[in-house]
Amino acid sequence: MELKSLFLKANNELEYGDVKPRSRKVTCKKCQKETAIAKVRKNNFVCPNCGHYFPVRARRRILMLSDKRSFVELFGDLESKNILDFPEYDSKLQAAREKSRENEGVICGVATIGGYRTCIFAMDSNFMMGSMGAVVGERITSLFEYATEKNLPVIGVTVSGGARMQEGMLSLMQMSKVSAAVKRHNNAGNLYIALLTNPTTGGVDASFAMLADITLAEPGARIGFAGPRVIEKTLNRALPKGFQKAERVLECGFIDDIVTRDKQRDYLEKILKIHNG
């Protein structure tokens, strides 16, 4: 991590306020209403007025799902490099580190949920839209291997625009790498639960997001392979209402359930309990 970013103030207005510390309010993108940040946070980052789901940082997400102080991070020291010398990638990485206050787009580790030990990973949309480069792939693969070795379940919270194009084929082939590790984890009889959040698309949708034993999604989350604008452009017509939204994906049969944020932790605990019986 750059020294400079150690001293940076938080810039996630939801958690620490924006410019003026006294007016800690956030404007909902959907209903345009202002709400006190504390109130939004207490409401699991859901707008109390209209029910809009605000994005949640990876670390916060893990805190929301796991038992207090149970999380121990793993593989956090791996950092991305501009291996292909891709134009503007270095500055984008730097900007992403500052924006997310993380050194990569996924946080992995072990935690307990309702006392049940589990591996957990959460992606971070503040880090280059949660795109999957070699480090994201490596961390998730390592986590699945760790879980296989220790016979632990894996809970994965996805949010991603897909493979990180700045790493070329090295990022595309992370799809193969992670999928193979998921397969080994599966073959050893271990449980994998995926929680898909808005948006889960591209190479992540076409690999580990769609390979879980139990696949859950947040209400309204966009889930799909191709981006909606690309499809619209290809077909030259407007897309049907609700297309690629979790509710429609559930109808199409590709997810098990839609779980609201206030119920997610209990839901996961219940699944873990049933699998530990």
């Binding site: 949708d205 769609m210 392979f225």
Partner: peptide
């Protein structure tokens, strides 16, 4: 590339590709 379309998405383009990677791996 894989086909981009409403039908392809709703029949699980992502899942289909993922499953190939998963099954081919072993």
């Amino acid at each position: 590339g894989a086909f981009c379309g409403v039908d392809a998405e709703e029949r699980g383009q992502g899942r289909a590709i993922a499953e190939n990677l998963y099954e081919m791996s072993d």
